[in-house]
Amino acid sequence: MPESLIPIYIMGKRYEVPEGLTIMKALEWAGYQLIRGCGCRGGFCGACATVYRVPGNFRLQVGLACQTPVTPHMNLVQMPFFPANKAIYDLDKVGSPLETLLQLYPEITRCLGCNTCTSVCPQKLQPMYYVAAALRGDFARAAELSFDCIMCGLCAARCPAQLAPYNIAIFVRRYYSKHMRPKPKHLIERVAEIRAGRYDQALSELAAASEEELKKLYVNREFEKL
């Protein structure tokens, strides 16, 4: 370092940073110690949603600061928080899927179908399509389409109908997973065995065994085939 420096604009202010850094590392290279706008640093948590423009392109571009490399003359600002609407509900006391959805998020019918949400999703999801699927009552499809959502807030920030697609999506996924997918039999049976104390004695014997005995049992255990 520094190999070749390129100019970037952090909230309009010019800094020279090494080419190839992510936006997040460029912010730190410039001297920022981040409080907001920095989380897992691995593309999972949605803390570091960033919008930027490059010269010669009127379009707003988006990315996660921890995942997006800087490019020359990028002019950027982070959006670490967005005050989106979130409905309060009790998942144990909900009605039919669509009825509940419309009750909790009546604004969902305002979706204009403009697909702006898709153009700003840093996860390359298509919120318009999962919102549409939810509105059709196809919760399975909506759950699948929205699964990779990291709830960064960019879609809500840009939605002209003022939906918060990601909050709609988490309600839909939870409803679907809890009420529309059966609980597997093997899980129900194992939980019943554990509640009945079926393994308590065997576990207690292991816990009381000498280290030598444990080592022998450990070395001799059989592996399921890969």
């Binding site: 809890k178 609980k183 899980l187 939980v191």
Partner: peptide, 12 residues
Amino acid sequence: LVVEWLKDLGAM
């Protein structure tokens, strides 16, 4: 028990 608890909370 924890897997069941998460499933009941709606984890996918």
